[in-house]
Design a protein around this nucleic acid. Sequence first.
DNA 1: ACAGTAATTGGAATTATTCTTGATATTGGT
DNA 2: ACCAATATCAAGAATAATTCCAATTACTGT
Lengths: 142, 142
Amino acid sequence: MVSQFPENSAEIEIPDEISGLRMTRQRQEVYRILQLERNHPTANDVFMRVKDRLPNISLATVYNCLEALVQHGIIRQVNFERESSRYCPNLSEHGHFHDAATGVIHDVDFKPGVNLADILNLPPGAVIDDVEITLRGKLVTL
Amino acid sequence: MVSQFPENSAEIEIPDEISGLRMTRQRQEVYRILQLERNHPTANDVFMRVKDRLPNISLATVYNCLEALVQHGIIRQVNFERESSRYCPNLSEHGHFHDAATGVIHDVDFKPGVNLADILNLPPGAVIDDVEITLRGKLVTL
DNA sequence: ACAGTAATTGGAATTATTCTTGATATTGGT
DNA sequence: ACCAATATCAAGAATAATTCCAATTACTGT
């Protein structure tokens, strides 16, 4: 399905269904915001942006949509400390660098060929399903 | 100061002051529980255990103590997903492996000589203050 | 011992998130 | 197209972890 909002420069095509999840209007819009806002928005950030197009959407629905998208592996949920969860559409295995000065969160990719077992003393028999790497620090201009 | 509870087999000596933090009775007991319970207890877990010796302590005080200890680098605070914060007295740089089957959290040490810049494509100029590595998976008996 | 500061307590307040209920919308079968 | 079954949505209430606040209590330095 092609978006019905051609006036928006950043056009994103979203099919009716992704990996078995029915893409309702609400889920489409939530997903679209995540594609557009690459700065790891919170549920509330998404809620405020999505209201531009769906003024009647509720925060609970945004939470529902985000959860459904996460559950179906369409987006990722990221947690920093005890802050609100943030969401990103970058599905590739990656970590996050949290700039303490600006609060900006940068995606950090793994260098190719890196194996966690090479750098960590894992407990014997550990089978890893999910990895989460978060760095905190600052960006120094050299 | 030597503990005044010699009947307890697992004795731990805690000085009156650690890295500039006045070790009040409450802070001592909170710290002692963390030394004893190496399974990453939550604030509430600590609260319940610490009441054995300080029946009048309040949960708010446990939170205060934990925060003071974290702030002074005496213990570490660890967050998994959006669960309650957990605390551990293991100060060495380490990650955590969360066994999905049992819920048990294992400390995971880095192999010696590992440099994060070797495995991650960090943004240029990134100075890292803190690293958090969390793995989720299961332990398979071979 | 006294004044000033820091810590503790108990309860209220806060905040992110989840739950509940009733209304709407969608699907598959006839 | 119609109907029943199912899924989704909206609004607000409920929950849980944590923080805040005001009143005591404990400690420190003089």
